[in-house]
């Protein structure tokens, strides 16, 4: 059974441990601006919404890549950027309708969530279980995936 990230924004306290863990795991720095998961803050309500790639089936980023630099990880189902193949053209960054693959000016490549190869650091770091890594069927990703489907520019008559 494939697993995916389940995000329950209602449990998020905005502590940013996920961003710290993500940037450390992937970029070797504690720097939220280098994180692949991003917590958005709704100040007036005191609400926080962690947000990252849902590893959608449509894989807009993968389809748009002109140099075959994004591949499906056969173990986790994540869509991974092959950094040595990515040329930094950024076409994936405008193609992903969720905005979850982004250009890193320092490396000249794009970065996105790869589920840390099957042990996502954000989920391990989250103290309130706002981010968990669970069986894919349980995640309620349906809403996000429905959104991905709506972006599809084909329809079957």
């Amino acid at each position: 059974m494939q697993k995916s990230l389940l995000i329950d924004a209602g449990k998020c306290t905005g502590c940013l441990q996920c961003e710290m863990a993500c940037s450390y795991e992937n970029e070797n720095v504690f720097n939220p601006s280098k994180s692949r998961i991003k917590v958005f803050t709704f100040h007036d309500e005191g609400r926080f919404v962690p947000y990252t790639c849902t590893q959608c089936d449509e894989a807009w980023c993968l389809q748009a890549c002109p140099v075959d630099a994004i591949v499906v990880n056969s173990k986790t189902g994540s869509k991974d950027v092959l950094e040595d193949v990515c040329v930094g053209c950024k076409v994936c960054t405008i193609s992903c309708p969720f905005g979850t693959i982004n250009y890193n000016q320092d490396s000249g490549k794009v970065i996105k969530c790869d589920l840390c190869g099957g042990d996502p650091a954000c989920a391990s770091a989250c103290p309130t279980e706002a981010i968990t890594y669970v069986d894919a069927d349980a995640t309620g990703l349906a809403r996000m995936r429905e959104w991905a489907g709506k972006t599809d520019n084909t329809a079957t008559a």
């Binding site: 950024k90 309708p97 250009y103 709506k150 972006t151």
Partner: peptide, 14 residues
């Protein structure tokens, strides 16, 4: 701007 720009596509196309 380089962060989350794809959302512009998502919002326009949906």
């Amino acid at each position: 701007l380089t962060q989350h720009v794809g959302v512009l596509r998502g919002l326009i196309q949906t």
